[in-house]
Design a protein around this nucleic acid. Sequence first.
DNA 1: AGCAATAAAGTAAACCATAAAGTAAACTGA
DNA 2: TCAGTTTACTTTATGGTTTACTTTATTGCT
Lengths: 343, 343
Amino acid sequence: MKAKAITLNDIAAKLNVSTVTVSKALRNHPDISPATTKLIKNTAEELGYTPNIMARNLSARKSNTIGLVVPKIAHFFFGSIIENIYDIAFENNYEIILTVSQENTEREKKHIQTLLAMKVDGIIISITQETRDYEIFEIVKRRGVPIVFIDRIPQIENINSVAINDKNGAIKAIEHAIKLGYKKIGHFAGYTNINIGRERLLGFKEAMERNNIAINPDWIIEGGFGENYGYDAFMRLYKQNNLPDLIFTVTYPVALGVYMAAAEVGLKIPDDVDVICYGNAKVQNFLSPPLSCVDQPTDKISRNAMDIILHNINSQDLVEPRNIVIETDLILRGTCTKFNKAT
Amino acid sequence: MKAKAITLNDIAAKLNVSTVTVSKALRNHPDISPATTKLIKNTAEELGYTPNIMARNLSARKSNTIGLVVPKIAHFFFGSIIENIYDIAFENNYEIILTVSQENTEREKKHIQTLLAMKVDGIIISITQETRDYEIFEIVKRRGVPIVFIDRIPQIENINSVAINDKNGAIKAIEHAIKLGYKKIGHFAGYTNINIGRERLLGFKEAMERNNIAINPDWIIEGGFGENYGYDAFMRLYKQNNLPDLIFTVTYPVALGVYMAAAEVGLKIPDDVDVICYGNAKVQNFLSPPLSCVDQPTDKISRNAMDIILHNINSQDLVEPRNIVIETDLILRGTCTKFNKAT
DNA sequence: AGCAATAAAGTAAACCATAAAGTAAACTGA
DNA sequence: TCAGTTTACTTTATGGTTTACTTTATTGCT
């Protein structure tokens, strides 16, 4: 039932030439005459030959494949990055092996091992929220497989990274708010052991201090990156009757949680509480009110990460690690556009 | 610089045993004594051995890999399906090779060839909007590689498919609306040359006719699946002063366009115009008002597709093609929940 | 004509792991 | 004790391709 695949050997046998001749002909090797090459190609086509990539890679010691590890797919930020990376890979004749850690460190580790076992030529990774053990990255390094960290960067020496200038993005947002007149500003900070959480918090603090605005520690709440956390954090402050005038959230889902909680308790955004978030998504335009944010240009992340990986793969010598930092844009929509003195 | 990878041979040489002994030990083959097995495993660990999957697959004539071809990633529907499929594959110790056609038929064809060349054990595919040439699928079939079509199904005999009952989903939504008392119902229908557009329009018409409600052709507008189209269509009717009481949109982005247009001209949803859409996304909960929809259970699509593929892979004999049709659920949130007599 | 250079092939080995078959020593039991 | 079985390995073959090297025939030049 299962028709076995045609191999170089089958073509060679049919034409009474050697396997190597066929292999060379199909790769346009100058060793083979144009006439023979043409004959072989026609026969290959006719027999429906498809190369066995396993065998090819094994022999060539190169897979033309880049491994990609992300924590999530159904997520605007990662979805965009993945799509961009696939496009660039396609242009460059590379295959992508995408794996999804689902924010699970064990899974992440296993995926990296699989990618190594698959002999990928390089790895692009955005680590999970919980990744603390960096040993696996040392292993990758020792294997000589180029690796680029994107967006979420572990604290290791001498690594390639493409990061967003998270701190500066936060500063932009907060300084804008301060200029509008806001003083009571809170920050739902997510997990601050990860760079994105840490840097955004740092930016928040720096902007406040730089402008001599008192930071109220009750208004800085840590805990997560999802809707639930935004909802819970808001509700906590609301029940304490201790809401700030503006909440700066670490991600856009957290802001969504705030929207939901505010609606539930009958508070109007932006009049009763105002919100601005880190991270852009098309739907923010369609919220009521449209949600302002700090935009992270995903295309620049993908482009830079692929550049670094391809450069590392194609150069024989040791390449100096590169650390790219991408600046953000402040996108103002229906929130955080004027000061609403609350309470 | 590039440390060459440790192979079975390296371990064997170090321990003065044969390669095969090492191979067997690492796979817990009963041939090898517990003591030797342990020794070998320790040494493997110590040297940092990772198996070469290329070589393994080549030797085993099986890749434990399933190819996945989708038109888009950064899209809620496909994003969810992909994520589900990855999860199920992980549970079953399969790898997924994901490729993205970007709605481009040439790219799609090339990807399928690559997957064949990679010797995937099976293929799950959602074809592009433009795919008309089905020859490549015949090739896949002839190779004996199981293939399952999801959501977008070509018209070929004897194929596995998992589809949504789009027509019935539309009927559910419209009949619900009619029961509430709606009579002036419009439909922003997208492209009706694609099955999803066609079926949803068909369902709309059937529900209307079945309930003896007059269909106003002015209220059926074709044109696209994105926000712009929803915005434009709404504005067109608004300017003609000819808005229906309820708009049923072919996708959720189209509904978003409607939200935006309505807000712009100062009409309140659901009181002035009501909306319901096809397709679910988490953010619909956070719109104001939360948007009701016809939900396509993506988890069921993934689950069924993987079931079929795994069953086909694991059974020696020819398996009868299966055609699964999945029913939708009506999810009612803040729109289309009561009749608002407008105008 | 003689000889080197080149064109167009071929041969052997390698890539790494697995499966199948073979072997020597130890063990079993009547 | 000795034939048969087990245990614990080893040897050989296989998968499909590429790379490095070799061979043979042809061409070009003096």
